[in-house]
Simulated scan of single mutants.
Amino acid sequence: MSTEMTVAFWLPEGNERFRATLSTQGPWNPSFQHGGPPGALLVRQIERCSPRPDMMLARISIDILGPIPITTLHAHARVVRPGRSVELLEATLEHDGRAVMHASAWRVLLPTTHPASVDEPEMPPQLPAQEFTSVIAPEWACGFLEATEWRYVHGNYNQLGPATAWMRMRHPLLPEEEVTPMQRLVLTADSANGVSSPLDIRSWQFIPPELTLHCLRPPVGEWICMDARTLMQAEGTGLSTANLYDERGLVARSAQALLIAQRSKVEKDSRKA
Rank of each mutant, 00 (worst) to 15 (best):
T188D: 14
V118G: 05
I62D: 06
I70V: 15
L250R: 06
L258M: 06
H95P: 02
E178Y: 07
M167T: 03
Q159Y: 02
S197Y: 00
F9Y: 08
C225I: 04
G238M: 03
A234T: 13
L244R: 03
D190V: 02
R229L: 01
I201F: 09
S61C: 10
L185T: 01
P111Y: 06
L57Q: 10
Q45F: 03
R184G: 06
T92V: 15
P138H: 10
I260H: 05
E94G: 02
I201L: 12
V220F: 11
M101R: 07
V108A: 06
L42P: 03
Q33Y: 06
S23L: 03
A129L: 13
S240Q: 09
P172N: 07
E16V: 12
S197E: 00
A91I: 04
A99L: 09
H74V: 08
E177M: 10
I64G: 01
R81C: 10
F206P: 02
R202W: 08
V195D: 01
S134W: 02
L41R: 01
A257K: 13
D269C: 10
R81S: 14
L89F: 02
I46E: 00
E131H: 13
P124H: 09
N193P: 05
R184C: 06
T3H: 12
F9R: 01
N158G: 04
V118D: 13
Q262E: 15
G97S: 09
V251E: 00
I70F: 07
T133D: 15
D227T: 04
M101E: 13
C49P: 12
H76T: 14
E90L: 10
D246G: 06
M1H: 14
I260F: 04
S85M: 14
R263E: 04
P51F: 07
D119P: 01
V100R: 04
E177P: 01
W204S: 08
P27V: 00
A129V: 05
D96A: 13
W106A: 02
Q130R: 13
L65A: 11
V79C: 14
T188W: 08
G14V: 06
R59Q: 12
A8T: 01
A75M: 07
N193F: 05
E149M: 03
Q33M: 12
F32V: 03
T113C: 09
H171W: 09
E120G: 08
C215V: 15
A137E: 15
M232S: 15
P115C: 05
T21V: 08
C225M: 11
L216N: 07
F18C: 09
I46D: 01
W166A: 02
A165P: 00
S240F: 06
E178H: 11
G161T: 09
R98V: 15
H214V: 08
M55F: 14
I260G: 01
M182H: 13
P198A: 10
L73R: 00
L127E: 15
F206R: 03
V7I: 13
Q205H: 12
L259V: 05
T71D: 15
A116Q: 15
P37D: 02
I207P: 01
E131P: 09
L199V: 11
N156I: 01
H214T: 11
G236D: 07
P175V: 13
S196C: 06
